[in-house]
Nucleic acid binder design. Structure first.
Lengths: 232, 232
DNA sequence: GGTCCATCGTTGATATATCAGATTTCAGAT
DNA sequence: ATCTGAAATCTGATATATCAACGATGGACC
């Protein structure tokens, strides 16, 4: 027990409960299209496939139902309800919430937070040249996190998180475009300026436009790759 | 079976599943303050008090957790997480989402829907004089429903519904103020105009300001009545 | 030939039992 | 008196069994 392994958390697989693990699996399956809209889910069968009992699965399905990804009809069945139209609406929801967060951030941002935003933007500019997309994604997340922190809105932040439907791969794909990387940084700078100048209306508007514009990009990308899969 | 009772739905108590019934009970208890923030919920005990097993209760608690009204710590406990700060954020979330809906409605509204909005506004004006608050509440709901319908945004509508934290009594209380009734109708007319003129930005801005203003009114009302309860 | 209804299988809803992590308690050592 | 740690206990997590509603099937009757 003198080995350094002793300090590692026990077993990653057991840190998450079965239900949250299963929740993640089913959610990804729906968002990635492995489970298509209208498809019926059988509790017993699904639990059996996953090698678990129905209890944690039922709880996971309730959460997915609350999120609007599945619809449950009593004693009839559970159906997947996620299609391109809903994906677009979820993007709009993200825009609405994220822009409200930006609005609040413009009211409450501290001098220190403004400095952190600025520092991140400088790093992004640098990252544009070195074309380290992974690093750019990380910087983007940090940037948005500073704004979230500045807003002081824990609930909105949480609600916002529920509207994320794209995985790491999709983000990587979109930011692999040179023009998109450039646009993103430009828009982030404009948002930071609005917040630093404490202009809530402007910050809100710029954030909304940014999320919608980059969101549409994602939607197009994904629908294209779906087409490819269908053709195959 | 010749009696007219035969036409009534079987037993109201059984139309809703236990879990959705319990979900409503616990949610109301949290929002009304009967269960205060930080309070610990015991699954066995709560299920026992309600005379049900833990299974439907667990599912209801998962939904409440997904909504952010409780927080579950594995094998430790379930805690209520709803306070005035979150109530305000939920109001802001409602403003963000409802204004995004109004924006979409301004893009897609039909001539027929504009006529329906106008007709409802006329009724509201009349209602102002007769001071039938119940009828006014109903008209307000119908008005917002027309906008929701015009937006064509089923998901946003659903998400919006989750941000409603005030019951019928609270709404009645706020609209019992003459000035509030007048303001509400004024604002609704302004929103309808923006949508009818198909000006998304204007509709969004007016809807946001309307929801925030009337929302603040609710927040003040409720915090006042909470103070009264505390004093008693 | 078509309609009606009884029956049975499917499936989610609910109840109950068991498992395992976390906290508390208290005896025993320092 | 304080600290340690093992046992008792509390509690959520999971598994399993049972219930009950919905729908499909098929035979009887008109």
């Amino acid at each position: 027990m003198g080995s350094e392994d002793a300090l590692l958390p026990v077993e990653p697989a057991f840190l998450k409960s079965l239900r949250s693990h299963v929740y993640g699996l089913v959610r990804d399956a729906i968002l990635s299209g492995k489970l298509k809209s209208g498809e019926k889910l059988n509790e017993r069968q699904l639990a059996g496939n996953l090698g678990i009992s129905t209890t944690p699965l039922k709880e996971a399905l309730r959460v997915l139902e609350a999120e609007g990804l599945v619809r449950s009809e009593a004693r009839r069945g559970i159906y997947v309800t996620f299609d391109p139209a809903q994906a677009e609406e979820m993007m709009l929801a993200r825009a609405a919430i994220e822009s409200m967060i930006a609005r609040q951030a413009a009211k409450r941002v501290t001098a220190e937070q403004i400095l952190r935003m600025r520092a991140l933007l400088v790093e992004m500019r640098t990252g544009l040249e070195t074309v380290d997309v992974l690093e750019l994604i990380h910087l983007n997340e940090q940037f948005h996190n500073v704004i979230h922190e500045a807003s002081g809105c824990a609930y909105l932040r949480r609600l916002q998180g529920g509207q994320n439907i794209y995985n790491h791969t999709a983000r990587l794909s979109v930011l692999s475009e040179e023009r998109e990387r450039f646009l993103a940084v430009e828009e982030h700078e404009a948002i930071a300026d609005a917040i630093a100048q404490r202009k809530p209306d402007l910050a809100e508007q710029r954030m909304r436009d940014h999320v919608i514009r980059s969101g549409e990009k994602h939607l197009i990308r994904v629908s294209q790759s779906e087409d490819q899969k269908d053709r195959a």
